[in-house]
Design a protein around this nucleic acid. Structure first.
Lengths: 224, 224
DNA sequence: TCGACGCTTCGAGCGCGGTCGAAACGTCAT
DNA sequence: ATGACGTTTCGACCGCGCTCGAAGCGTCGA
């Protein structure tokens, strides 16, 4: 008989299909309302509400009330990381699709991870930023390099006085199996990508589709 | 309604207390028989057997038959990583123990992770090996440095022609949140620690307890 | 060949938890 | 005030899956 942290409790929260769908939906990073999540999970509103209170009680979600709307979001990056880890195993042991769908391929190239960009593009971007010494990476953390402030402010991203959240964080990419950039900077870059309409979010998916000119713009700024 | 990898299926496998206990036990790295796992999980043999076939079917375990014994082990490092991720969340959201038990403290210092050493000692060891250029670490991987072969063979560890498994791998430590050394080299070092009786395994736990002289010997070799 | 042992399969019991309709609650608009 | 809307609570239903005892199946040792 073992003791220690109650991993069964946490895992069983993720282990219900409806809740798993909700959590997957929230991996997109945007907080959603109970009705949206009910739709996403394919269950009725009362059922969804019940699931949501369980996830709240389990500490996996945060809740932001705005008037008569209540927005649910993932409790934090650690929870997101856990979902990614589970996804990785599910992907690995799951029935190999004979032909990986186009959406699957798109997911590998670029997708939203909580609030920042993930996938091959994101991993490549971080590599390049480190190569150019704009960011400094060691085992422990990622830091801003000396030229970071000027580089990013030229692009229109402010990396100034830091809020509570760290500016840079490493986040392990489940498809590439290497780190990409998270933190406020990672979030800001994703914001910029969407704001400039370099890419759009695939409907009902975490995938990010770059338009041809958007891809050029992105690569010129971050992969050149 | 979402599709994609069936994360609920995987999570629900971990979500049963009996199975979670079994998986935790297997995180110790040594393969165990059905009866040992039944004891570990606190269920009867038939129940354990049923759980084990589910875990097998789910791809989370491997099975090695030796005569009338059947040894179950974790399917691989990816599964181990997932368990660690879930453990991390459970630890974070779980009821904060007012006083972390002594075993808990011991776990943070040193413990077994699959087949190698984890915890503060392990993270410190990897840092030191990298500092001394015996190992070379970048984001992508850990490699042997030029002096690695002579350094380790002097200790009695052969890092010669490589088997299928990589010699070095990075593995994220859930308590320290930084990498420690996995791979055949990591496994060999743990073997040596136990063989030389520098430390013993805490009964029914992943914790590793160094004896005072053992700790000295270990630190002289790996932390000096 | 026979019994001992480790493990799995079978069958039955049963409780936990997911499910939804109806009703209650709180907020916003008119 | 009144109605519309988003959400939660209540109550009842139902089935999945966890559980164990007994029996069946291989493997090993004498």
């Amino acid at each position: 008989m073992r003791e220690g942290p109650d991993i069964a409790r946490i895992a069983s929260l993720v282990g219900d299909p409806a809740r798993a769908n909700m959590l997957s939906a929230l991996m997109g990073g945007t907080a959603l309302t109970a009705s949206e999540l009910a739709l996403e999970a394919g269950v009725s509103l009362p059922t969804a509400s019940s699931h949501l209170s369980k996830l709240m009680e389990g500490g996996l979600l945060t809740l932001a009330s705005q008037g008569r709307h209540r927005y649910y979001g993932l409790a934090g990056p650690q929870v997101a990381g856990m979902i990614e880890a589970i996804t990785g195993v599910a992907e690995a042991v799951g029935p190999k699709r004979v032909r990986p769908g186009p959406r699957d391929a798109a997911m590998r190239v670029a997708r939203v991870c909580y609030d920042h960009l993930a996938g091959e593009q994101a991993v490549a971007m971080l590599d390049r930023l480190v190569e150019k010494d704009i960011l400094l990476r060691d085992e422990r953390e990622i830091r801003l390099g000396p030229s970071a402030a000027s580089h990013f402010s030229a692009i229109g991203i402010d990396v100034g006085p830091r809020p509570r959240r760290p500016v840079c964080r490493a986040c392990l990419d489940w498809s590439v199996r290497r780190s990409h950039l998270a933190g406020t900077l990672g979030a800001a870059i994703l914001d910029k990508i969407l704001l400039e309409k370099w890419a759009r979010r695939e409907k009902d998916s975490r995938a990010i589709i770059f338009s041809p000119p958007g891809k050029q713009a992105f690569e010129r700024l971050f992969l050149a």
